[in-house]
């Protein structure tokens, strides 16, 4: 088989894997937009905050240590424990639920019936607040995140593809785990929304706020629920991306990789977030591989948006989004 074709296959597989990583971020946006019509600008920062909290709890870091030490003249830094990853993840999920409650009580409750742009602006404020809050709470240094996920080349895939094609493919074990987690997450979310009482209520609110309220569904509870789930999804995204680069404040910028996925897949579809992620991932990687070297490389960021725009021209609601028809 010609080398270029084999390389293109390797690039395609890696594009699919990268797409899954983008989808993990995009899922959080979709959940909140679907349930409340809010484009949550803070989703990337939620992933950062969740990852910071996870590392902080796992390593026994004293929250607000710098502030406490500065005010009281103490020298506190660590509690002296190292929690097992599962416990730390569970506790962090709990923190994300508490944050969802706080967001509902302190922000969303006061903005009921406001225009979507007002709610969007509120999430911008929330993003900046959370970034600063995370900084004061856990510090801005880069933290190594280790929850036991495997990283590095999959030797099995390398060996098998070497036998088949004469060239061993590179697939990162972390990407394989991310794919499994994404499949499990989407399955769990689908089962939850289809078969649980709360899931049905969530879908009812997504379909029609007014009708859902008229049958006794609590909008406030739904908001807490959906922000909690989005917080959990952000935690998963934060773990995957944080394992790759360490937990640091640039983690919030992963939201930039989710936007073209949302534009392409649609803001209201969970399968759309996955399929959109895969198309963006493969598209940008193949373009970089085939055309990038001719035009100086570094094409992925803009190509993802160009691809999304191209889809928008033909399907403004995205591949799986709901078509919005407003009658005058």
């Amino acid at each position: 088989m010609p080398d270029q074709l084999v390389y293109a296959m390797e690039v395609t597989l890696n594009g699919l894997m990268a797409g899954v990583m983008y989808s993990l971020v995009a899922l959080g946006f979709v959940l909140i937009f679907k349930a409340s019509g809010i484009f949550n600008y803070a989703q990337g920062v939620l992933a950062l905050f969740a990852a910071l909290t996870l590392v902080g709890l796992q390593q026994g870091q004293v929250p607000f240590a710098h502030l406490i030490n500065a005010v009281f003249g103490t020298d506190l830094h660590h509690f002296g424990w190292h929690l097992p990853a599962v416990v730390a993840i569970a506790l962090t999920a709990g923190v994300m639920v508490l944050m969802a409650i706080a967001v509902e009580k302190l922000v969303l409750k006061h903005l009921v019936n406001q225009a979507p742009i007002i709610l969007f602006m509120a999430t911008i404020g929330l993003a900046y607040f959370l970034e600063g809050f995370g900084d004061v709470m856990w510090g801005a240094d880069i933290k190594k995140l280790d929850v036991g996920l495997p990283q590095g080349i999959s030797e099995t895939i390398e060996s098998v593809t070497a036998d088949w094609f004469g060239y061993g493919f590179f697939i990162d074990n972390l990407d394989i785990v991310a794919t499994v987690v994404a499949v499990a997450l989407v399955t769990a979310l689908t089962v939850f929304s289809q078969y649980s009482k709360q899931g049905r209520a969530l879908r009812a609110v997504a379909d029609d706020h007014q009708a859902a309220l008229s049958v006794g569904i609590s909008l406030r509870f739904i908001w807490v629920l959906v922000w909690s789930i989005a917080g959990f999804v952000a935690l998963v995204a934060g773990i995957m991306w944080g394992t790759k680069s360490g937990v640091q404040f640039s983690l919030s910028l992963i939201a930039l990789k989710a936007l073209p996925v949302l534009m392409l897949g649609g803001f209201t579809s969970i399968p759309g977030a996955i399929v959109g992620g895969l198309i963006i991932g493969v598209g940008e990687k193949l373009f970089e591989f085939s055309i990038g070297p001719m035009i100086g490389g570094a094409t992925e960021n803009w190509f993802a948006y160009m691809l999304a725009l191209l889809f928008l021209v033909f399907r403004p609601q995205g591949l799986f989004g709901e078509r919005i028809i407003e009658r005058v």
């Binding site: 390389y7 594009g15 590179f170 990789k257 591989f289 100086g296 490389g297």
Partner: peptide, 17 residues
């Protein structure tokens, strides 16, 4: 010369190359 766009969180293409 292999460029990496800001911020550089995703470098799969570069390292495959």
């Amino acid at each position: 010369a292999v460029p990496v766009d800001h911020p550089g969180q995703e470098q799969k293409s570069q390292w495959l190359q």
